[in-house]
Simulated assay, not measured.
Amino acid sequence: MQRQSSYAQEAGKLYLVPTPIGNLDDITIRAKRILQEADYIAAEDTRTSGILLEKIGVHNRMLSFHKYNSKERAPELVSLMQKGAVIAEISDAGMPVISDPGYILVQECIKNNIPVVPLPGPSAFATALIASGFDAQPFTYYGFLPRKKGEQQPFFEQMNKAHATSIFYEAPHRLVKTLANMATIFDSDRKIVAARELTKIHEEFIRGTISEVTAYFKEQAPRGEFVILVSPNTQQSEQLSWAELIDLVNELVANGESKKTAIKEVAQNNHISKNELYDRYHQK
């Protein structure tokens, strides 16, 4: 067991600092102060973050920390913190660790007893969820889906059966193809919301059935980054057998999910005990 006091007096620590997802006014007073006081700022893209930091008056030294160098860079950052440095980790936009490699640095800090201090702030999927009109409890966040149709289908099958709102991100140049892939799994009248350019001047929510939203974007070329939300399945369906549930877990594992995460998702989406599914899965 490990116990952490985030506000202990150790000099070295890691702050996870959210940055605006569009509107710069969304930077918090505390986030700005931490960025100004940190010895280093670990940034996913130093050029993108440099523009933001310049606009909010922060001029501290930046270190690149992204998915291509995270495994090598994390120990270096930990070493700096062990010597007393305070590091603020930021994503290109929104919450660090969410859809970025920040979790690798968090894991290294925990392993080395370095305090990790999270700050609350902007998140694109949460911002879209509260304005979607769908039930916000429960929901499942998938991040970015695989790009290939065959790899996407197991995720869409999970969403199709889920009694929770499902959320994922998509890039504009892949949006129409992804919606077409969805349509092969879902009923055409299933409700979805496509939220784009959140908090920016061109913020927009396109609400409708999958077929309606797909038709709209075939006429209007998608622009900006998208959050896609899928309404919960409200149909009462028969309970799947344990063999079928285990097959669903195996599909998610085959597509890159850990066994633990896959079991949790399948259990949640089918309203069954996670522990019981775990036991059944490992007895297979």
Rank of each mutant, 00 (worst) to 15 (best):
A180N: 13
A180I: 03
A180P: 00
A180M: 11
N181W: 12
N181C: 08
N181P: 09
M182T: 01
A183D: 03
T184N: 08
T184E: 15
T184G: 10
I185W: 12
F186N: 07
F186R: 05
F186Y: 04
D187F: 13
S188A: 13
S188P: 00
D189K: 14
R190V: 10
K191F: 09
K191D: 05
K191Q: 15
I192D: 04
V193R: 10
V193N: 05
V193H: 12
A195R: 01
A195M: 07
A195H: 09
R196V: 00
R196L: 04
E197W: 10
E197G: 03
L198P: 07
L198N: 00
T199Y: 08
T199C: 07
T199M: 05
T199K: 02
K200T: 04
K200F: 08
H202G: 00
H202D: 04
H202Q: 12
E203T: 00
E203W: 10
E204S: 11
E204F: 02
F205N: 02
F205Q: 01
I206M: 10
I206D: 00
I206H: 04
R207M: 08
R207T: 04
G208Q: 09
G208R: 04
G208A: 07
G208L: 08
T209D: 09
T209K: 11
T209N: 11
I210P: 04
S211P: 00
E212I: 06
V213T: 11
V213H: 14
V213N: 03
T214L: 15
T214H: 13
T214P: 04
T214A: 14
T214I: 07
T214N: 12
T214V: 07
A215M: 10
A215L: 11
A215C: 07
Y216S: 02
Y216K: 08
Y216M: 02
F217P: 00
K218T: 08
K218V: 06
K218S: 09
K218L: 12
E219V: 12
E219H: 06
Q220Y: 11
Q220S: 03
Q220T: 09
A221P: 00
A221G: 00
P222L: 00
P222Q: 12
P222I: 03
P222F: 08
R223P: 00
G224S: 04
G224D: 03
F226A: 06
F226V: 01
F226D: 06
V227I: 13
V227L: 10
I228N: 05
I228M: 10
L229T: 02
L229C: 05
L229R: 04
L229I: 03
V230C: 11
V230I: 15
S231Y: 13
S231A: 15
S231Q: 09
P232N: 12
P232I: 06
P232Y: 14
N233Y: 14
T234A: 13
T234K: 15
Q236W: 08
Q236E: 14
